[in-house]
Simulated assay, not measured.
Amino acid sequence: MPPDKLMDETEPLATKQCASCKEEKPLTQFLRRTGRRSSAGSRRGACRECRKAKAAAPLTAVTAKEPIAVRSSVKANKSLPMPPRPSIPLPNDPAALKTTRQGTIWMRGKTDKGRRWYQEIDLELAVTLVKEHAAVIVNRHTIRRLFSNKDFRRYILERDNHTCYFCGQFGDTIDHMLPRAKGGHTTPVNCVCACNACNQSKADQDIESFMK
């Protein structure tokens, strides 16, 4: 058989133009496409060499292709300070308290042994405890007692230096200036150090009548 006839009968090698380097390369240099709609002979646009070079390129080369306006705006946004947040009530502002649907406020605290407890109180009592520094606001429906019974007694005695508020002698008890029977509460503002004699003699009297 003549050699010219052999050259005509041989099938030409299929090629494709790379989408990156724009060179004609054999189909073996391109990855096959996957998916239901892909045919058996379909190939991807970029050749294997261009894909490897793109994967090995540093990230700075990718960002360098971004428009200058985009990069400058991103840098400007990073340098700008955060906008100021809207003003919210202070943590100990009683105006921040709102009752629940039941019309109460949740109060939580800890016992002398560290066990947690919860209690429902009215809004007026919660406001008084916050104002007189016996509790702090956790959220608009909840306050937290600052002292357990044992810690509160030690705090009052150390604050008043174990000195009776009424007679000036040594004191080891605490007394309510406005008695609890008349609406007083166990708060740092309403409690003082007292000796045992003054505490017993005062009983449920007002401080004005007792001092007279």
Rank of each mutant, 00 (worst) to 15 (best):
R32S: 14
G171N: 05
G184V: 08
H162A: 03
A194R: 01
S148E: 04
E208V: 13
T63I: 04
T28A: 13
Q29N: 09
T63P: 00
T186Y: 10
I207K: 06
G114H: 01
E120D: 08
L146H: 01
T100D: 12
D160I: 00
K22C: 10
N77E: 14
N190A: 00
K16H: 15
A134Q: 15
L97A: 06
G171V: 05
K113E: 03
N92R: 08
P94W: 00
L59M: 03
F152T: 05
E24Q: 08
I174M: 05
D8S: 02
A46E: 08
F170N: 08
L146A: 02
R85P: 13
E66C: 10
A96E: 01
C198W: 10
D112V: 07
Q102K: 12
Y165M: 00
D112K: 11
N139H: 03
A53R: 10
A46R: 13
I143G: 09
T111A: 05
Q29K: 06
R159K: 07
T60N: 01
P188R: 10
R85L: 15
A194I: 02
A40F: 14
I88L: 13
V189E: 04
L178V: 14
S39I: 07
R159W: 04
R33W: 05
Q169S: 12
R37C: 04
L90V: 00
K75L: 14
L146W: 02
C167R: 07
E23F: 02
L97W: 09
T186C: 12
N196D: 10
C18E: 12
D151M: 03
F166P: 03
I68E: 15
K182C: 10
K110P: 00
K5C: 00
F152P: 11
P58V: 00
C21H: 15
A76F: 07
K113L: 04
I68Y: 11
L97V: 05
T163V: 12
T60Y: 03
A126M: 05
R51L: 14
E9Y: 06
E23G: 00
C167P: 08
A181K: 09
R48G: 01
C198Q: 08
L90T: 05
W117H: 09
K25T: 00
V62M: 09
E124S: 10
A181Q: 07
G109Y: 02
P81G: 12
S73K: 15
D175E: 12
E9W: 09
L27M: 11
C47S: 02
P3T: 08
D4T: 06
R108T: 15
I156W: 01
R154Q: 12
V136M: 02
A53M: 02
L178F: 01
Y155E: 11
D204C: 04
S201V: 10
V70S: 15
V62Y: 11
M82L: 15
V70M: 14
I121H: 08
S201M: 15
C195H: 06
R116F: 01
C21A: 08
G114W: 01
T173G: 05
S42K: 09
F30M: 08
P12Y: 02
N77L: 14
Q29E: 11
C18T: 11
L27H: 06
A126Q: 09
R33I: 04
A95M: 03
D151Y: 01
P91R: 08
